[in-house]
Design a protein around this nucleic acid. Structure first.
Lengths: 231, 231
DNA sequence: CGTAGCCTTGAAGGTGATCAATGTTTGTGG
DNA sequence: CCACAAACATTGATCACCTTCAAGGCTACG
């Protein structure tokens, strides 16, 4: 645990305002994990003994369908926690697989630390709730677009990711995303995603090089989401 | 508050094991609401001053799409809480509209009671987490089926509702659900839902009278979900 | 006994899935 | 640093699944 970079940890909203001694307590038994692209943090079905806080980079939370296809349930960004709700139950198993997208850093924190210390701290539990609420909102938002045409769902997904990973600063997605992953996230096929994104590239709406996306015409993307692109 | 039926309240897993005096504290300022079909508990956009616990019946949590269509985000069953995660944030607004389906009873509990008393009680917060986790799981499960044919999504939805509202006892859905509501829940159109359910009625898989559904051949429904019905 | 809410059926058409084949880039081991 | 494998992107053709639109019927209830 000594190797955890506190200066980075303290920058997370989650841990803001804590003294180093308090942080030491909250991170009792915690481990810093430096991940490379495609490293697995948790595997669906494994016994849930710890939860994770994302420090840097991104994780995708993936589940498999009966026919073996992947479905991306959520993208976790820095500050997000993963598997927190599992800590309350007696014995349980991770429902999804968490995989790093590009280089990433997470802290894994043992269940016992959560139950012994976190749950007694109303401030941090309030922040956890806020994180959960954000994830809830994202999933509900997605549900609202189920019936929308693929182009709209895709555009919404891109905007959502950019907002969460780049904030308002710029329109470049700092994480590598394959077309397949977009498809898995919006519930579609690679081919369809490619057709739409190629179209957008040709129209100069976005640019993509080596799985990194840059939105050039954010206004056009917004129009597409609002269904005004046919006008 | 005097009018709250404690014998009913105590049966909820959420409040199990509490003395009446403790319950009185947890329900400080709470109100029992007896609802009729289509009564609105919370309206999306209203300021979130309280959260709710479902005692009896069912609520649908609805959001509207840009084009004015309804999307049912979740069905809340007895024991579920609604808007809990909102209580942690300073000032907020309900993200969804909560509407009763058939007669229902809910308790609404003020935000201040939650923050003053609930958050200090680790036991009840653990139970809240379990409730949230169940809702999370349901939403994720649904996401796994986005690409599945409508018949499968519909079958899954019916089974999920029956499990939550009837437990293992029987196969009758005790709440009234229109075809439109099924469509709103699975992200489809009324007509398509009707076509599939009519087919099932003819095959004797289920029976429906006045918006109440009874599954006759649960085995067939299970087969449909597993995609074995074409065999 | 009329209206509102719900259910049903048919026809036409579009979106996007699937299959198949091929090109391109990235990463790795020798 | 090259060569080859693996991962990723692309394009075209075909067609199933649903949506949409339109029109009408049924049932409960004030």
């Amino acid at each position: 645990m000594a190797e955890i970079d506190f200066s980075r940890v303290k920058k997370l909203n989650l841990f803001e305002g804590y003294y180093e001694s308090q942080l030491n307590a909250l991170l009792e038994g915690a481990t810093l994990k430096k991940l490379s692209h495609r490293d697995v943090v948790y595997r669906a079905g494994d016994e849930a003994n710890s939860f994770a806080v994302v420090l840097d980079g991104a994780l995708k939370l993936v589940k498999q369908t009966a026919s073996g296809e992947d479905v991306i349930v959520f993208f976790a960004s820095p500050g997000d926690t993963v598997a927190t709700l599992l800590m309350s139950s007696e014995k349980s198993v991770y429902p999804v697989t968490a995989v790093a997208m590009g280089p990433a850093q997470v802290i894994t924190i043992p269940k016992r630390t959560f139950n012994a210390l976190w749950t007694k701290d109303q401030v941090i539990m309030g922040k956890i709730n806020a994180i959960l609420f954000a994830r809830f909102s994202e999933m509900q938002e997605q549900k609202i677009f189920v019936k929308a045409p693929l182009a709209i769902r895709l555009a919404r997904q891109i905007v959502s990711l950019i907002e969460r990973f780049s904030g308002d600063s710029g329109a470049v997605l700092p994480i590598p995303l394959t077309r397949q992953e977009f498809a898995d996230a919006v519930g579609s096929s690679v081919e369809s995603v490619i057709r739409i994104m190629s179209e957008w590239s040709q129209q100069g709406i976005l640019k993509t090089s080596d799985r990194h996306i840059e939105v050039i015409r954010m206004d056009r993307i917004a129009e597409i989401i609002n269904g005004q692109d046919k006008v």
